[in-house]
Design a protein around this nucleic acid. Structure first.
Length: 264
DNA sequence: ATGGTGGAACGTCCA
C-alpha cells in the first residue's frame, strides 16, 4: 500500500494537481493539509471520479485536513482526544482527522505554525504537540500492535540538516529547542520518522517559501513527515519526496511525501 | 521589468 501526505495550500486551487499526483504515483491513501475550505466547498467529484473516497474537516478558509483513500475509509475521527483549541474563547480548529484505510490508522495533521517565538501561537503549538503525544501514547497503550501513520505538516525542522541555513532560522520558529523537544516527545511516545532513512539529507526538503526564488535556490525546510507506530514502521519499504510537484506554475509551497508500506 | 509570493470572508490575515 502506498500512502502519502501533502500540504496542498488550498484544495480548490489545486484539485487537478492532487488527482494527477495520485494517478502519477499510483497512491492509495493521501493525507491533505491546508485545504482552506469548508466541507461544503471541498471538490469531491474529481476524487470520486478517480476512484477515491474523501473524509474532510474544514470550518472556514483556514486550516482544513482530509484523508483521501481508495482502500477503504472507516472510523473517521475529527480531532484527536485532548486536542487544544485556539482563540478567545478557545475553539477547535480543523487540524486533525483520522481514518482507517486498508488496516492502517491514518492521521492527517496540520500542526500550528507558531508564528514567532514570542507569540501565544507558539504556546498553542507546543500544547497541541504535547496533547498529540499523549493521545498517541494512549493509542499504543490500548493496542501496541496498531499500525498508525501520523502524517502531515509538522511545522518543525527536527535537525539542523533540515533547513537550508541554520543562521537564517536562528530566533525564528520551526527550529527552536522547545519545538524540537515537542516533536521528540511524539517520537518518544513510540512514533518514528519512517522517511528519513530513505531520503537522506542535508539539503533534502519538503517546503520552500514562495518568495525570493527559494525553490530554484534550494532554500527549503524538511517539515512534512510520516511518523509510524512500531508495527507500521516495520512495514515501510521505501519513501520519497515528490520534488517535481513543487515545480511549475500553480504549485503548492510544499512537496508531497510518499511512503510504501508492505502488505501484512 | 513601475515588480519582488500566494491563497483565502475582497480586505487583510495567514503562512
Amino acid at each position: 500500500m502506498r500512502i502519502a501526505t501533502w500540504n496542498c495550500n488550498s484544495i480548490r486551487s489545486r484539485v487537478d494537481r492532487a488527482v494527477a499526483f495520485l494517478e502519477r504515483h499510483d497512491v492509495d491513501v493521501l493525507a491533505l493539509q491546508e485545504t482552506k475550505c469548508r466541507d461544503d466547498q471541498f471538490p469531491m467529484m474529481p476524487f470520486q471520479a478517480a476512484g477515491y473516497d474523501v473524509a474532510h474537516v474544514g470550518y472556514s478558509q483556514w486550516n482544513g485536513v482530509a484523508v483521501v483513500s481508495r482502500v477503504g475509509l472507516e472510523d473517521v475521527e475529527v480531532g484527536f482526544p485532548g486536542q487544544p483549541g485556539w482563540g478567545e474563547p478557545a475553539e477547535a480548529e480543523a487540524r486533525a482527522l483520522g481514518a482507517t484505510c486498508g488496516g492502517v490508522r491514518v492521521w492527517s495533521l496540520y500542526v500550528p505554525n507558531g508564528r514567532s517565538l514570542a507569540d501565544p501561537h507558539l504556546l498553542y503549538k507546543l500544547d497541541w504537540l504535547a496533547a498529540l503525544r499523549d493521545a498517541g501514547r494512549g493509542w499504543l497503550a490500548d493496542d501496541p500492535g496498531a499500525a498508525v501513520a501520523l502524517m502531515g505538516d509538522w511545522n518543525i525542522a527536527p535537525t539542523d540538516d533540515d533547513v537550508w541555513s541554520v543562521e537564517y532560522y536562528a530566533g525564528k520558529t520551526h527550529t527552536s529547542p522547545q519545538e524540537r523537544a515537542a516533536f521528540a516527545g511524539v517520537v518518544e511516545a513510540g512514533f518514528a520518522d519512517v522517511t528519513r532513512e530513505h531520503t537522506p539529507g542535508p539539503g533534502t526538503f519538503t517546503y520552500w517559501d514562495y518568495t525570493q526564488l527559494a525553490f530554484p535556490k534550494r532554500r527549503g525546510m524538511r517539515i512534512d513527515f510520516c511518523l509510524g507506530s512500531p508495527a507500521l514502521a516495520a512495514r515501510v519499504e521505501q519513501a520519497f519526496i515528490d520534488r517535481d510537484e513543487r515545480k511549475g506554475k500553480g504549485a503548492s509551497d510544499h512537496a508531497p511525501v510518499v511512503v510504501d508500506v508492505a502488505d501484512v
